[in-house]
């Protein structure tokens, strides 16, 4: 079975606004506003419309942000939250 690909919600399905250290994201389908902070905006940017597997995403995040060992669990939890919020799709 191929690995699950995670994709950020299409740009026309959300509205975003940068608010100092936070990003407000309005999710059109649910009408819910999410106020997120790092690493959620970075995860969304990396996934984009093309998508990545979970392993590839975590590897790129670790490389880009020089993450110490042991943070993979936290990053995976953030990814799952974004899926639950509808801001990331998994297929």
């Amino acid at each position: 079975m191929p690995d699950t690909i995670y994709r950020a919600a299409a740009p026309d399905t959300v509205r975003t606004a940068e608010l100092d250290a936070f990003t407000a994201i309005y999710h059109r389908a649910s009408g819910i506003t999410h106020l997120v902070t790092s690493p959620a905006p970075e995860i969304l940017a990396m996934l984009g419309g093309g998508g990545l597997t979970r392993a590839a995403l975590l590897a790129r995040l670790a490389a880009d942000f020089d993450l110490p060992d042991g943070d993979e669990g936290a990053l995976a939890a953030r990814l799952d939250e974004l899926v639950a919020a509808g801001l990331v799709s998994a297929s």
Binding site: R15, L19, D20, A21, F22, A24, Y26, G31, L35
Partner: peptide, 24 residues
């Protein structure tokens, strides 16, 4: 800060949710 203002004003608004994207 902007993020705190945003949160406090969503709480101070009685119709932010009802207005949907226009409210955002």
């Amino acid at each position: 800060p902007e993020s705190e203002v945003f949160v406090r004003l969503t709480q101070a608004s009685t119709n932010y949710v009802a207005l949907g994207e226009r409210g955002f």
